[in-house]
Simulated scan of single mutants.
Amino acid sequence: MNMGMKGIGVRRLALALSGICVFIAIGAVPVYAANISFTFSGTVSDVHGGVFTSGGTGTNGFGSALPLSGAFSFNPATSDVLPGDPTWGLYPNAIQNMTVQVGNYTATFAPPPGSSVMQVVNNGLGNTFKVTLNGLTGNPVNGLSPAIFEIELINPSGSAFANDHLPTTPPSLSSFSSNQWRLVFSGVGNRVQGALTSLVPLPAAVWLFGAGLIALIGLGSRGLVTRKES
């Protein structure tokens, strides 16, 4: 086989690899095969029980007006355990991981042993989006350990959702008349809570990073063709 034929063969291989990359980058996205991540932020409005410390910044107890930030990832292919009810979706253990920070305090979640449930309600009484995570990991605050984290959005008008499926894009906070988060500690009545100010997808920079990798693969293929033909 002469060098011209080798060049054509390598060029065809490069085109085939490029086609596979495009299929992965574009064709696979609509089926949501990978986990989906939402980031969130908010503020503290109330602190109850033994985790309250006047002027606390988090690790030494919580005061009011501290910032909240965090992110969680979930599997959008998780099955609804109530398939016969088209108005209430109940998705156990959909959450794959979560990190939440209040002030300078951080708690994390990962299964197992932690468990989770995501709920999407779409009925005549309105819409609810609720995320509940049990089994957090984090340092004790005033001797109390983190136990539960919740996000709950409520819209009595019932216009936020079209069905009871897990949302693949974050629900718009402006569509809900009430939104609240809670970080609950061990014991009774020990919690810090407030309202969300944002609930958004994973930053676009992460997707751009993936696209950059695909571009590098394409550049490498073209370089291989050039070297083979020279």
Rank of each mutant, 00 (worst) to 15 (best):
V200A: 13
I214F: 11
G63K: 01
N123S: 10
L125H: 06
S115Q: 08
S79M: 14
N134S: 14
M1E: 09
S41V: 07
L224Y: 15
M5V: 14
E152Y: 11
G70E: 12
H48V: 14
L208Q: 12
V141W: 05
A94W: 01
F161Y: 05
G9C: 13
L199D: 01
V102E: 01
S159P: 00
P76C: 14
Q193K: 03
L133F: 06
F74E: 04
K130S: 02
E229N: 05
G143Q: 06
L202A: 15
F23T: 11
Y91A: 00
I24Y: 08
N35G: 13
L173K: 12
D164C: 10
P156A: 02
A33K: 05
P112N: 09
G61F: 09
P67D: 05
L15Y: 08
V10H: 11
G4T: 04
L224S: 10
V225N: 07
I20K: 09
V51Y: 06
P86D: 14
A215G: 14
T43F: 04
Y105N: 05
N97C: 07
E152V: 15
N155I: 02
I20G: 10
V200H: 07
V117F: 06
T132D: 09
A28G: 00
H48G: 06
F52R: 05
C21W: 02
W181M: 08
N155M: 03
I36K: 09
V102S: 04
T137W: 01
S175I: 05
K130D: 13
P156I: 02
T169I: 15
S157K: 00
L216C: 09
V225W: 03
T53V: 11
V117N: 12
S159A: 01
S198M: 07
L17R: 04
F38E: 04
L196F: 03
P113G: 05
G143S: 00
L183N: 10
A16M: 12
Y105C: 06
L144W: 14
P86I: 06
G210V: 10
T57C: 02
R11G: 10
G61D: 08
F185Y: 11
S115L: 07
W88D: 15
N35W: 09
N163Y: 02
N139H: 01
P146M: 15
G58I: 03
S54Y: 09
